[in-house]
Design a protein around this nucleic acid. Structure first.
Lengths: 129, 129
DNA sequence: CCGGATCCGGTCTGATACTG
DNA sequence: CAGTATCAGACCGGATCCGG
């Protein structure tokens, strides 16, 4: 299982603007949702899949690999046989908290999103073990 | 020129999570770059095109329409013949400042982005007439 | 059953060319 | 200058398969 090579992971693809560079890494419909789930305390492939947005398994697998490559998350073997992995934010990944929080605020203000306050607080607080 | 109908602009497509809703609107490689440019004081189609990321003209046109539909920006006729429009953030659009700022911070910290400090400050300050 | 990998049709993106 | 038309190719997402 070659976890080394992903198709596209050059550093700054389009310009030297930090916003553009960030968008090159996270600028799609799914990546930040995986990160949201990590902040929410989800750690397994299955948990990510069970989020209400129903991410396809191949997309999820690819995103996890990419985020691992970028050292935004770490993958840990937590069970030998059968092999089971859990995914955890690195410091670099945890630094995305403000991005997520800003999006949460904006969505909450400008879209009739109905996420519960508890979940929001849970998300804002951040991650853990 | 029918500026009313865009293909996909339902409100919350995938879930009621504010983050997911926000990503449904802005979660692609280009939209937030247009917003960044607006914050940087750019207002015309040409100015957006001249950004170093080289957004294709059709993508730019589609994004501008969508953002206008979502009332994130406003389009103003500033010249009669030939008709010329300028684009400006609404309050809703200006509220995206923190999202942009958070991405800017993260990119600046974790990617060797080399945008000048002046431009960053300019961006952070926000928009204007 | 879980964590993916593979296949595959359809959609969307983006480079280029074109128009008013 | 401000877009629209076109179109090949990339990508998404659903289904299915498979190793442990």
């Amino acid at each position: 299982m070659k976890r080394e090579k992903i198709k596209t992971t050059p550093r700054c693809q389009r310009s030297n603007c930090p916003v553009a560079c960030t968008l090159d890494l996270l600028g799609d419909k799914w990546t930040l949702l995986v990160i949201r789930d990590l902040f929410m305390g989800k750690h397994t492939f299955k948990a990510f899949q069970e989020s209400p947005e129903n991410i396809p398994s191949n997309v999820l697998a690819e995103r996890l690999k990419r985020l691992e490559n970028e050292q935004i998350l770490q993958r840990k073997l937590y069970q030998e046989r059968p092999p089971r992995y859990s995914y955890h934010l690195t410091d670099k990944g945890r630094d995305l908290g403000p991005v997520l929080q800003a999006m949460l605020m904006w969505g909450n203000t400008h879209v009739p999103g109905t996420m519960s306050k508890e979940d929001i607080d849970k998300l804002i607080q951040g991650a853990h073990g």
